[in-house]
Simulated assay, not measured.
Amino acid sequence: MIENLDPKQSWSLLQQNPAAVLIDVRTFIEHSFIGHPPNAVHIAWKEFPGMQLNSGFVDQVQKRVPDKNAPILLLCRSGVRSLDAAKALEANGYQHLINILQGFEGALDADKHRGNIDGWRFHDLPWQQS
């Protein structure tokens, strides 16, 4: 079963459970230049050019998180790719999956800008750029 938590709930879980792993499923460019939470493991679900599906995603997660009972939190830009990635992990036996609603940048506002309504950065949670 996949749980959905907002960014603040997700940060709280990461602080309370040292076994929890945060996986940033965004592209390399998003992770590096837009920013990411500290200690986020970067494993892209899709990658440029063309947003091709990373066929090695599950294997790459298994190498980083071999314990299929460990809590895994998945983060993308707005919460869509992370849910797809969580479904792939669930199909491969992972038990404690958390999709981070709103993602890192959040929903688009009326001016089609992200970060003004919700999301990890909007809630002023820790983040850094490479």
Rank of each mutant, 00 (worst) to 15 (best):
Q62N: 14
R81K: 02
V65E: 09
I23M: 03
L14Y: 09
L53W: 02
H31F: 15
H31Y: 15
I29C: 01
D6M: 12
A19N: 13
S78Y: 13
I43H: 05
N69H: 09
Q62L: 14
K46M: 15
V21K: 15
P7R: 06
Q9C: 07
N69E: 12
A20F: 14
A44R: 08
E47Q: 15
P66R: 10
P7T: 04
S78F: 13
G50E: 03
L14P: 14
Q52W: 00
I72P: 03
W11E: 12
F33E: 11
S12G: 06
V80H: 11
R26C: 03
G56Q: 15
I29T: 13
Q60M: 13
K63W: 02
L5P: 06
M51V: 00
Q60R: 12
P49F: 01
R77I: 01
P18Y: 06
F48C: 01
Q62R: 15
P37H: 14
V41N: 00
A20T: 10
K68E: 02
I43Y: 03
R81M: 01
N4Y: 10
G35Q: 14
R64M: 12
M51E: 11
V41I: 15
V41E: 09
P49W: 00
L13K: 14
W11D: 03
H42K: 11
P38A: 04
D67L: 03
G35W: 15
S55L: 11
L22N: 09
T27F: 01
I29H: 06
N17H: 11
V65D: 10
C76N: 05
H31S: 02
P18Q: 13
S12F: 11
I43S: 02
V61A: 03
Q16F: 03
P49I: 01
K63N: 10
A20D: 13
P38S: 06
V61G: 02
V25Q: 05
N54Y: 08
P7V: 04
F57R: 06
Q15W: 04
I29P: 02
N54K: 11
W11F: 14
D6F: 09
P66D: 10
P37M: 14
N39Q: 14
D67Q: 09
S32Y: 00
N54C: 13
K46F: 08
P38E: 09
S10R: 04
H36I: 07
P71I: 05
V41Q: 06
K8P: 07
G35L: 13
K63I: 02
L22M: 11
D67R: 02
W11T: 00
L73V: 04
P38C: 08
F48L: 15
I72W: 02
I23W: 07
R81Y: 04
S10L: 03
D24L: 05
I23E: 05
N39I: 01
R26K: 06
R26F: 07
M51Q: 12
F33Y: 12
W45C: 01
A40K: 04
K63C: 01
L5Q: 15
S82I: 05
F57S: 07
L22K: 07
D24S: 03
F33H: 08
L53V: 14
L13T: 07
L14M: 09
V58Y: 03
Q52K: 14
A19T: 12
I23Q: 07
L14N: 05
V25I: 06
S82P: 12
W45F: 13
G50W: 00
I43R: 05
A19Y: 09
A70M: 07
D6A: 08
Q16E: 13
D67Y: 00
